[in-house]
């Protein structure tokens, strides 16, 4: 079985702070990590490799620095790593990104494509379903379990109110939740080995795409503006005895007609 895992390098958004004076994001010193849901996807692929036997290829689109994350994927146990890196991909929204990834995957041999549910920087959850559409493959999102069957997969999907079991016939795209697949650590040998291996860097010329559908040109949505969240006027903060605090809360709740 050939499994492709789509991964993205993202800033660790839990480490981002806002400059209280300028009101801008402080990105300096924020570490870049493998997107957690994608890492869960890689973990699922590696578990399938152990139980079913599989070749696992990780594919990422991004700047040259994403090389480091792809080596982490190799050190965890992936067999092959491809980085789509080309200025022509720049400025892509989810439609153009999914188009480029689909164009790459179309040139590869695969039985299953796994992606993370969403990336923690954009939080859109759109790239994988759009990629599935470009490839004309069925999709199941919010996946918490997947098993290979004779002619497809049995997949469990987590919704807000239920867990569904679905049967997929043939090749498909799955998007997975990090919480369901706790990722393994890299091994020391894996790390050493990963730096001896090649991360293939591909440009737009090596994939099956029409150039005008890539990057900014191929993106129907544009960022009109971005701004730090407006901070609300802080209210009053009191340091009182417990009795006084209770009385103050009660009087305010009465004022606001809450009690």
């Amino acid at each position: 079985m050939n499994i492709i895992v789509c991964v993205k390098q993202v800033p660790d958004t839990t480490e981002i702070k806002i400059d209280p004076v300028k009101g801008t994001l402080i990105r300096d010193g924020v570490p870049s990590i493998m997107n957690p849901d994608d890492k869960g996807g890689l973990e699922l692929a590696l578990r399938m490799k152990e139980t079913e036997g599989a070749t696992v290829t990780v594919v990422s689109m991004g700047p040259p620095q994403a090389d480091r994350m792809l080596r982490e994927a190799l050190a965890m146990g992936a067999d092959r790593a491809i980085l789509l890196s080309d200025r022509r991909f720049a400025g892509a929204d989810t439609l153009a990104t999914s188009y480029a990834l689909a164009g790459c995957i179309r040139t590869l041999d695969y039985d299953l494509i796994i992606a993370g549910r969403q990336a923690i920087d954009g939080d859109t959850a759109q790239v994988a379903p759009e990629m599935a559409q470009h490839l004309d493959l069925p999709q199941v999102s919010y996946v918490i379990d997947a098993k290979k069957t004779a002619n497809g997969f049995i997949v469990k999907k987590e919704n807000e109110d239920c867990v569904q079991t679905l049967e997929v016939e043939g090749k498909c795209v799955l998007t997975v939740l990090a919480s369901a697949f706790k990722a393994r650590y890299m091994t020391v040998e894996g790390i050493i080995d990963a730096y001896k291996r090649e991360v293939e860097v591909w440009t737009a010329d090596q994939i099956d795409v029409e150039e005008e559908k890539l990057g900014l040109k191929g993106s129907p949505t544009k960022v009109h503006k971005s701004f730090p969240k407006a901070l609300k006027e802080p209210g009053e903060v009191f340091e009182l005895s417990e009795e006084e605090a209770v009385e103050l809360i009660v009087s305010r709740l009465k004022e606001k007609h809450i009690i």
Binding site: H224, S226, K229
Partner: peptide, 10 residues
């Protein structure tokens, strides 16, 4: 976006 750190108008 960015975990709620930034707002973007699209």
């Amino acid at each position: 976006a960015f975990g709620g750190n930034l707002m973007a108008t699209i």
